[in-house]
C-alpha cells in the first residue's frame, strides 16, 4: 500500500473543504438523531431534560423487529454461504455459455429495483398463504438480493492462479474433490468469504425496498419498524429507534469487520 505519509504534502484547500463538508453532512444528522432520542421534547431541545422513556417505548412496541432482523440476517448469511460458495467455485472454473447465463441471472435482483422483484414474488407466490405470511418469504427476497454480492466477491478469489496450484498440489497428493474443496480451497479463500459475508449481513440488516412489500404485520423487520415509527410516531420515538438500530447494528458489523480484517492479516502476513 502506498500512502503518502513520508512526504506528507498538505491537501489543496478546496479538497480539504470538500472533505470537511462531506464529513459534516454525514455526521450532523447522526448526532441530531442521537440527541433527539434522549431529550424529553425535541422542539424545546436540551433544556427540556434527558430521558430514556422513548427508548423504553420503542423496546415495548418494536422489540420483536430487532431479534427478527438479526435472525433473518444470520439465516440469510448461512444460506448464502452454503449455496453461494460452491456456485462461485463452479462459475470460476467453467466458461460455458450456461454458466455465463447463470452469472447474468444472478445479477438481476441487484440490477433490477427491489420493488420490481418484490412485486414479481408477491404476484407469483402471494397466494400460498402460509409461505406469504412467514418470515421465510422475506428470507427468500434477502437471499436473492444479497447472494450476488457474495458470489461476485468469491469468483476472483477462486479464479486465482495460486489457488489453482494449491488444488493441483492437493490432487497429486491424492485428495478427492470434497477433500480439496473443504480442506484446501475454502480455507484459502476465507478472507474473501469473510468480506462477502460481511456484505451479505450488512445488506440484509438494512434491506427495505423488498422487505416493505414482502412483510406482514407479524413479520416486521428493523427497517420496516423504523419506517412505521417515522410515519406514525412522534419524532423522539423515531429518533430513539434509530439510536437502537445504530447501537445494535454498528457494533455487530464492526465486530464482523474486525474478524474479517484479522483473517486477512493472518493470510497476508509474511507472504
Amino acid at each position: 500500500m502506498s500512502r503518502g505519509q513520508g512526504n506528507a504534502r498538505r491537501a489543496p484547500v478546496a479538497l480539504r473543504l470538500c472533505v470537511a463538508a462531506t464529513l459534516f453532512f454525514v455526521i450532523t444528522p447522526i448526532i441530531l438523531s442521537i440527541l433527539a432520542g434522549f431529550v424529553v421534547n425535541y422542539p424545546t431541545g436540551l433544556k427540556s431534560g434527558l430521558t430514556t422513556r422513548w427508548i423504553q417505548e420503542v423496546w415495548a412496541v418494536y422489540g420483536d423487529t430487532l431479534a427478527r432482523s438479526i435472525v433473518l440476517a444470520f439465516a440469510c448469511l448461512v444460506i448464502a454461504i452454503l449455496i453461494g460458495t460452491p456456485c462461485a467455485y463452479a462459475l470460476s472454473q467453467i466458461r460455458s455459455r450456461w454458466a455465463r447465463a447463470l452469472e447474468e441471472l444472478l445479477m438481476m435482483p441487484v440490477a433490477v429495483p427491489g420493488l420490481a422483484t418484490a412485486l414479481a414474488l408477491i404476484l407469483m407466490y402471494g397466494h400460498f398463504k402460509g409461505f406469504r405470511s412467514s418470515t421465510a418469504f422475506i428470507l427468500v427476497g434477502h437471499v436473492l438480493f444479497t447472494l450476488p454480492f457474495l458470489v461476485r466477491t468469491l469468483i476472483p478469489a477462486f479464479a486465482n492462479a495460486e489457488l489453482r496450484a494449491l488444488d493441483e498440489a492437493a490432487r497429486t497428493l491424492g485428495a478427492n474433490f470434497a477433500q480439496r474443496f473443504l480442506g484446501v480451497l475454502v480455507p484459502a479463500v476465507l478472507p474473501a468469504l469473510a468480506a462477502g459475508a460481511l456484505m451479505v449481513f450488512t445488506l440484509s440488516i438494512g434491506e427495505f425496498n423488498l422487505t416493505w412489500m414482502l412483510h406482514t404485520p407479524l413479520t416486521r423487520t428493523l427497517p420496516v419498524g423504523l419506517a412505521d415509527s417515522y410515519a406514525s410516531m412522534r419524532l423522539e420515538i423515531g429518533s430513539a429507534y434509530t439510536v437502537i438500530f445504530i447501537a445494535v447494528v454498528v457494533p455487530t458489523l464492526w465486530a464482523l469487520q474486525a474478524g474479517a480484517d484479522a483473517l486477512q492479516r493472518y493470510f497476508t502476513k509474511n507472504r
Binding site: L82, P86, C87, A99, L106, L147
Partner: peptide, 9 residues
C-alpha cells in the same frame, strides 16, 4: 455445485 443457486434463482 450450481444446482442449488440455479434452482433458487
Amino acid at each position: 455445485l450450481l444446482t442449488p443457486v440455479a434452482t433458487l434463482f
